[in-house]
């Protein structure tokens, strides 16, 4: 059979395989972003839906012209001028950066340790790292409230050990946010790191040792550079969602300063200001666009590079 004929038939029968998820994602993932963009340029109103202008399809071109004329960038001007929003953005970036750094410092030794333990143990250990990820995110954050609250276990233990003589307010602090972030995102850091560390060729390390290279130097010159793709993937997989995180700062953090996810939530649910909430979402997306594109490239390379 000629290759052309075979290929033609395969394309015919598999076109639907591509088309169905393509249309689904275009309708429920891509189109919504365009709507967010549109609403971020609208004004809030006491109406249903609570924003103007509404696009008048019946009026045709005139309706479209009126619609475009009524759009404004006021919401973005508000984001730039009000300190509340700027502080939120900066706090989110700070929390994401510090959490990712802590995750790297904790996650790397764990991934490295798993990769160096006997091979038959490794699948079990990887499973043990993944397992908490399968239990509810909300439950895992909630578990820490039990521990961190004023009459919680941590204070109990610390006071019994006489480290502190009165309860420390762990909850509602930045420390609690960091604990929650590191705890929840640890599997996302460990797994990509392990995946690259596990593939490091043992003979390279032996060669370095044979040539008299001390162990720390072998790590620095051979292992670490070889694990960079996993390190980048893990860091991005943590940094990007942490920046927009809502549940963890809301349940564990204090009320004095909010992360951007909380600000968006508040504008939408408490203030019912959909246009401003949309503008925050667009601005957050803009902030994360570069790391996201970078992550997509890594993902594509790891899943499709082998071909």
């Amino acid at each position: 059979m000629s290759m052309g004929a075979k290929k033609g038939r395969r394309l015919g029968s598999t076109r639907l395989v591509l088309l169905i998820p393509y249309l689904w994602l275009a309708l429920f993932f891509l189109a919504p972003f365009l709507i967010v963009l549109k609403i971020s340029l609208s004004q809030t109103a006491i109406a249903q839906p609570p924003y103007v202008p509404a696009l008048d399809w019946v009026a045709g071109w005139a309706g479209l012209r009126d619609f475009v004329a009524a759009l404004s960038t006021d919401n973005y001007a508000l984001l730039g001028s009000d300190w509340l929003y700027l502080v939120s953005y900066l706090k989110s970036l700070q929390v994401a950066a510090v959490s990712t750094a802590i995750l790297l410092m904790i996650g790397y030794p764990i991934a490295y340790g798993i990769a160096r333990l006997p091979r038959r143990l490794q699948p079990i250990l990887v499973m043990l790292v993944i397992l908490p990820f399968w239990t509810s995110f909300l439950i895992r954050v909630y578990a820490w409230i039990n521990i961190l609250q004023r009459d919680g276990l941590l204070n109990d233990v610390l006071m019994r050990l006489r480290v502190v003589d009165q309860p420390v307010a762990w909850l509602s602090s930045d420390a609690a946010i960091y604990i929650g972030m590191v705890y929840s995102y640890l599997p996302f850091m460990v797994l990509p790191l392990y995946a690259t560390l596990e593939k490091v060729d043992e003979t390279l390390l032996e060669a370095a040792a044979d040539l008299g290279c001390p162990r720390w130097k072998t790590f620095w010159l051979v292992t670490l550079p070889l694990s960079l793709p996993g390190l980048a993937a893990g860091a991005l997989l943590c940094f990007i969602p942490i920046t927009g995180e809502f549940v963890i700062p809301d349940l564990l953090g204090g009320s004095d300063s909010m992360m951007i996810g909380q600000t968006l939530w508040m504008e939408f649910f408490a203030n019912k200001d959909w246009p401003v909430a949309s503008a925050i979402a667009v601005a957050l997306l803009g902030l994360l666009l570069v790391p996201m594109l970078f992550y997509e490239r890594l993902q594509q390379r790891s899943l499709e590079g082998g071909r």
């Binding site: 591509l18 998820p21 393509y22 994602l25 275009a26 309708l27 429920f28 993932f29 891509l30 189109a31 919504p32 972003f33 709507i35 967010v36 609403i39 839906p49 991005l236 997989l237 990007i240 969602p241 920046t243 927009g244 995180e245 809502f246 996810g261 968006l264 939530w265 939408f268 959909w274 909430a277 949309s278 979402a281 957050l284 997306l285 994360l288 996201m292 992550y295 997509e296 993902q299 594509q300």
Partner: peptide
């Protein structure tokens, strides 16, 4: 575009996905 749409929800902050898909349903 397709692979972009497939991989993006993996890291997209949930508040953005939630808000945008709600606004679609409202529209």
């Amino acid at each position: 575009l397709f692979s972009g749409m497939v991989y993006a929800p993996l890291v997209m902050p949930e508040v953005i996905t939630g808000l945008s898909v709600l606004l679609l349903f409202v529209a």
